[in-house]
Simulated assay, not measured.
Amino acid sequence: MDLLAFFHVETAAELAWVGLGFLAQILFGGRFLLQWWHSEKAGESVVPVGFWWLSVVGGTLMLAYALYRRDPVFIFGQGLGLIVYLRNLALIRKAARRAAVTPPG
């Protein structure tokens, strides 16, 4: 099977970008499996920090792929999503610092 033809690309470099796109999608999709697993363990809806890290890594790779493909809709969606993911990580870090400073009681 000719992978270049199968994926509708002309060069090995383009095929590598398709591979990056698939990796990005796997990481980005994996965040839902992680969230589901943590929620099942807790018996309630939980969003673990790893969800946001997978969102950032997967979203960044997908944004790179979208930029390479010059897809403005995909670029816009992933760009805005990254702002949300990074903001959530900042809020989590802020809460952790506050909890470390505040004595229990």
Rank of each mutant, 00 (worst) to 15 (best):
M1D: 01
M1Q: 05
D2Y: 11
D2L: 08
D2G: 09
A5Y: 07
A5K: 14
F6P: 13
F6K: 11
F6Q: 13
H8V: 07
H8E: 11
H8R: 09
H8W: 11
E10K: 12
T11I: 01
A12E: 15
A13R: 14
E14H: 07
E14P: 04
E14Y: 00
A16L: 10
A16E: 12
W17P: 00
G19Q: 00
G21Y: 00
F22N: 03
L23W: 07
L23F: 12
A24Q: 13
A24G: 15
A24M: 07
Q25R: 06
F28D: 01
G29Q: 07
G30E: 02
L33Y: 10
Q35P: 04
W37A: 15
W37E: 11
S39M: 02
S39F: 02
K41F: 03
V46A: 05
V46F: 06
P48M: 09
G50L: 03
F51W: 06
L54K: 04
V57I: 14
G58S: 05
G59Q: 02
T60V: 02
L61G: 03
Y65E: 03
A66S: 06
L67P: 01
L67M: 09
Y68I: 01
R70C: 02
P72Q: 07
V73K: 02
F74E: 08
Q78R: 09
I83H: 00
L86R: 13
L86Q: 07
R87M: 12
L91D: 13
I92L: 15
R93N: 15
R93L: 10
K94C: 13
A96W: 08
R98H: 14
A99N: 14
A100E: 15
V101G: 10
